[in-house]
C-alpha cells in the first residue's frame, strides 16, 4: 500500500462521512429554509429563500400557536426530570451500594419497567387520573391562588406519570455508575460511623454529579418529546404541552401550511436541540448505556 493509495482511501472515507452529515442534516436544513419562504412550493425544497420570498411571518404564527404549549412543556419537563433523576439515584443506591439478598430480583422489576409499551397501561392510567385521583378537583382551593389555573392539576398528574415511568431508566443509569464506585470506599465510610443516609448524602451524592448530568439531559429530552401521555391524560386543553400543539398546526395531508409546520417543528424542538448541542457528549453516554 503506497501513500497515494492511502490518501485516496482517506479522501474516500471523509467523502462518505460528509455524505452522511448531509443525509442526517438535510431534512433539518430543508425544514429551516422552508419555514422562511412565502411559498414553499415555488422553489426547490433545499434552496434558500429567494430575495423576494423571505418571510418571518410563519415563525410568528407558529410561535403564537405554540406559546402556551412551550410554557406547559417547561412546567412539565423540569420538575418531572429532576424528580425522576433524584428518585432513580436513590433507588440505585438502595439496590447497589447497600448490599442485601434479593436485590437483583427487585432491580429486574425496575429494568423490565423500561421496556413496557405504554399501550399496556394507558387505559388504567387515564382512568386513574380521571376518576380515582382527579387532582384538578382535589386541589381546587389552590387554583384560587394567583398564577395557578385548574389545568395545572392536570399537569401535575402528567408530571407524576412521567416520574413513575422515568424511574426505571434513571435507576439503571445510576446503578451502572454506582457499581463502578469503590466498594472499599463505602466500607470505609461505614467504619467511619456513617449511616446509610449520611453515606448517601456525604459520599455517594457528591460523587454522582456527572451521572446526574447524563440522566437529567436524557430525561429532559424524553419528557419534552413525549406525545402519548399528554394526549391521553389531558388532551388538547389549556394545559397541553408543545408536542400536542404541534400536531394541530397546519393541515397534514395538503400542501397548505408547510411553512408554519416547519417553523413550529423548530420552535418545539429548540429546547432539546439547545440541550443537545451543549451536552451532546452526555446524551450519547446516556443512550449508549
Amino acid at each position: 500500500m503506497n501513500t497515494s493509495d492511502l490518501d485516496g482511501r482517506r479522501v474516500g472515507l471523509y467523502a462518505v462521512l460528509f455524505g452522511l452529515v448531509a443525509f442526517y442534516l438535510l431534512p433539518l436544513e430543508i425544514g429551516l429554509v422552508t419555514s422562511l419562504k412565502t411559498d414553499p412550493l415555488a422553489s426547490l425544497p433545499f434552496a434558500p429563500p429567494a430575495a423576494g420570498s423571505f418571510t418571518l411571518e410563519e415563525w410568528g404564527r407558529a410561535f403564537t400557536a405554540l406559546k402556551s404549549g412551550l410554557v406547559n412543556s417547561l412546567l412539565l419537563a423540569v420538575p418531572a426530570t429532576i424528580l425522576s433523576a433524584g428518585l432513580g439515584s436513590m433507588a440505585a443506591y438502595g439496590l447497589t451500594t447497600l448490599q442485601w439478598r434479593g436485590q437483583v430480583g427487585v432491580f429486574t422489576l425496575f429494568i423490565a419497567g423500561i421496556f413496557i409499551p405504554y399501550q399496556a397501561v394507558l387505559l388504567p392510567v387515564s382512568r386513574f387520573w380521571a376518576t380515582y385521583a382527579p387532582l384538578e378537583e382535589w386541589l381546587a382551593v389552590l387554583w384560587l391562588l394567583p398564577g395557578l389555573e385548574a389545568y395545572h392539576g392536570e399537569l401535575l398528574s402528567l408530571i407524576i406519570t412521567h416520574v413513575a415511568y422515568g424511574i426505571p431508566i434513571c435507576t439503571l443509569l445510576f446503578r451502572t455508575y454506582y457499581k463502578e464506585l469503590s466498594g472499599e470506599m463505602v466500607e470505609a465510610a461505614k467504619l467511619d460511623g456513617a449511616t446509610a443516609y449520611t453515606i448517601y448524602r456525604r459520599v455517594i451524592l457528591p460523587l454522582s454529579v456527572p451521572m446526574f448530568a447524563v440522566t437529567l439531559i436524557y430525561q429532559f429530552t424524553q419528557i419534552w418529546n413525549d406525545l402519548l401521555f399528554a394526549l391521553v391524560i389531558m388532551g388538547p386543553g389549556d394545559g397541553a404541552p408543545v408536542t400536542v400543539g404541534l400536531t394541530n398546526i397546519g393541515s397534514s395531508l395538503t400542501n397548505l401550511g408547510f411553512g408554519v409546520k416547519m417553523a413550529g417543528a423548530f420552535i418545539a424542538a429548540l429546547p432539546t436541540m439547545v440541550v443537545y448541542v451543549l451536552f451532546g457528549e452526555q446524551f450519547a453516554e446516556g443512550v449508549a448505556s
Binding site: S182, M185, A188, L191, A194, T195, V203
Partner: peptide
Amino acid sequence: PADRDVAMVFQSYALY
C-alpha cells in the same frame, strides 16, 4: 462496624 471502635486501612486506601 461503626460501633466496634475499630479503624481500617484498605488496600485501595478507599479515600473519598
